[in-house]
Each structure stands twice: as structure tokens, then as C-alpha cells.
Design a protein around this nucleic acid. Sequence first.
DNA 1: ATGTTC
Length: 483
Amino acid sequence: MPAPKEIKRISEVIWEIPETYKKGMRVPARIYATKQLLDAMDEGVFEQVTNVACLPGIQKYALCMPDGHWGYGFPIGGVAAFDFDGGVISPGGIGFDINCGMRLVKTNLTLEEVKPKLKELVDLLFQTVPTGVGATGFVKLSNSQFDEVMVKGARWCVEHGYGWKEDLERIEEHGAIKGADPSKVSKKARERGIDQLGTLGSGNHYLEIQVVDRIFDHNVANSFGIEQEGQIVVMIHCGSRGFGHQIATDYLKVFLDAMKKYGIPLLDKELACAPIDSPEGRDYYSAMLCAANMAFANRQVILHRVREAFEKVFKKSAEELEMHLVYDVAHNIAKAEEYEVDGKIKKLLVHRKGSTRSFGPGHPELAEIYKDTGQPVIIGGSMETGSYLLVGTKRAMEETFGSTCHGSGRTMSRHKAKKEINYNQLIKQMEERGIYVRAASKSGLVEEAGAAYKNISDVIEAVDRAGISRKVAALRPIGNIKG
DNA sequence: ATGTTC
């Protein structure tokens, strides 16, 4: 679908829809994309990103990344920052899967060493990391322990033997965001989440064994633990499971009523929101952070299982295998961050939905190990087309509220993929290309076929050219576990 | 994404 005729080209990869496009827009909308990606975007993206531009307290621009596509209320690939003074918080700007995110682990193994053991490794991981809809995990929690997980996130896991102390400095916010309040979480959300720690889930969630295909920046790659092409790494993509989903559902309902109370005009029911500084807004923020911390903990337990599986298969300790965490980063979340707006430093609530934080060198919130380089940015492609490791930039801080893209973005609906792609053929094609896959369901696998997604390389070129993150390494899948 | 239309 073509972009609206009012769209203006700002640079090679930035496009702007002015405030005059639609009644009620408070700021312009900006889309980061090559001409080719822009032309391929669905009409819904333009509609949704300009709707977001109408929300109270929005700052500078409503943004959409090159992997943008139609989502619930806000586009997936959307970034929107709201002033704490007068601005709103919206579950639609965060996503149902709160703190869906990516985790990347390195090893010192090479492709040659892993190839003969690949099936054994993937089969073992498929047993120890539960996948699929409704999967439950092996970590048994009491209600008070689950409260601790909501507040302490990945730190709770490390304190209970699931991981290494050094893992914590390699996670966004050290794996535990301050401000989570378990008393703001419904009983139903608690019941759905309590046995889901260490589970992958379904949809586009996966655990993948990958090989470093190409290194673009050797210095930065090295500092992240990526030393050579042919090195094996493991990527984990999952979030807060039914727990975050229930919290989003609960507060969408609360916010629809709150909007009437606060006199916020309703453009679209999916854009339900509340003032950040209102009882409803504060409650959702505190509950949302419980789900964010649970997701960090979820990925931490999965990392622990990955280390255990490698230890068993390669008969060496995870320390000997140098299985250090490269990074863990969220791509569905809202964060309190400070940015310069009109020459003044303001505290903003940055909503990233299908968008990854991309803090550049010297950012005060980054751990010492990333101060010189900027933070690692982990971008998962589809299971066939490969993934990327990027690094954050100063330019992202200036232009996109410290944000970049998150993945490939679908081009084919799940329904269409199920109709057009044959399961047995897909498995065979993947095996021919050296990818061994185990999936919880046949339909789940075909829905995630590479053919159903945009080309990840096009998306990466767009963010790299825009300078809102830079290419560090390209990663290619060899083994995959899917929900 | 999701005890996949509580």
C-alpha cells in the first residue's frame, strides 16, 4: 500500500508525515525506512503512527522503525515518548507480551565442533526448555517467591543458582527494573504466570543455535565476546508469557474507563491509555514492571538450561566453554528516561513496542563493560534468514529516544503462511541448508517460515544507514527450537 | 503474543 501523499522525505531513510495530515496530531510522525521498505509497508502503519501522534503529552515525533507493521493500537516497530508531566501510558504502546526480548550467549565452540553433536544438543534443549502454548516450567515457586521474582527479576534467579553473578551486568537494567509492585498484579495474572518461569512459549518465540557468519566491526565484536567467524552462539527470544498478557488485558479494561474520567478523547479503543501521573497509570506501570522483571527471570532460567545442556553434550563446564552472556535487551516495554526536548532535559516515558533500546557510548545507565562501545543490540530474524548483533549510537539518543528496530517483521499473515507453506517441505529445505529444527507444533513452524517475513538484511541496512545503531556481526541459524 | 474467541 502506498504511503500518504503528504509524506516528505527528510533523508535517505527518514520520512515524515506532517501534523496537518490528520486532525488532532500534536507532533509529526516519522518513519525510518528505505524507499523500498516504505513502499512495502501496510497502510495500517501510517494510520496507526499518526493516531499515536494525537496522544496527550507526546514529544517530538511518533516514530516507526523499518520493521514496522500493523499492531494492536500502535504499530509494531513503534517508539513514542511521553512527558511525565501531562503525558500518558498505554498498554498498546508496549504490547501484550511485556518485555518480549532477546538474549545472546557466546561460546568458544566452533561450527566444526558442534556439527556432529547438533541433533543431540537440540533434542536435549527441546526437552529441558518447555515450548508451546500453555507450557509450564520446572521451577516451582510459592506465591511469596513469585513476588520476589516480580521485584528482583534475573537477580532472584542468580541468587537461587540459576546463573552467574556476572550475568546481571549484561542485562538491560541489570535484569531488575525498580518500581515493580506485586500488589498491582491481579490474582488471575499471578495464577497464569507462577509456573511459567523457564518456558519459551509459542508464536515467533524460539531458542536458536547460531554460527557467527560475518563480523563487520572486529573491535566492538571482540569486546562483546564475538571473536571469530565460525564461532557458535545461542539466541533466546521470549517474554513474560501468559503473565504479561494477562496484565495487559487487565489494565486495558481499567484504562477504557479511566479515559472517560480524565477526558482523553478515544480515537481507537486499542489506544486505551491513562495519565502517567494518575492512580490507574501508576498502577499499570508498577504491574507492567512486574511482568518485565518476570521476563528477565524467564530468559535467565532458560540461559541456565542452555548452559546445562552444553555441559552435558560437550562434557565440559559452562565456564570452560566460556558461555558468557553477550547481552539481554527488551523490545516491548516502557521506560523512564531523560532526553533533551527544546533545549531542556525532560523525564519521559519511552514506549518501545517491537523496538530495541540502542544507548550509545558513554551513556550513564550502561554497565562499565559497554561504556566505550555503546550497548549491544540483538536483532532476531526469522528462523531461516539469520540474525544480527548491532551496537547502540549517540545518534539514536538524539533522534529516536535511544531506539532502533527489533526484527524482520511479517509480510505474510499467519493464515496465509499456513495455507501456502508445506511443513515437510520446509523441514527438508531447512535440513538441506544445515538447520535442524524441533517444533512444538507443525502449524507453529510454518507460520514462522522465512518466506513469511521481510528480509532482515534490508531492515538492518536501513537502521545502519540512519545511524541509529551500527552493524557488528551477522549470525546464521543451525539449530532451532520453536513453540 | 495468548490456558490461540474469559
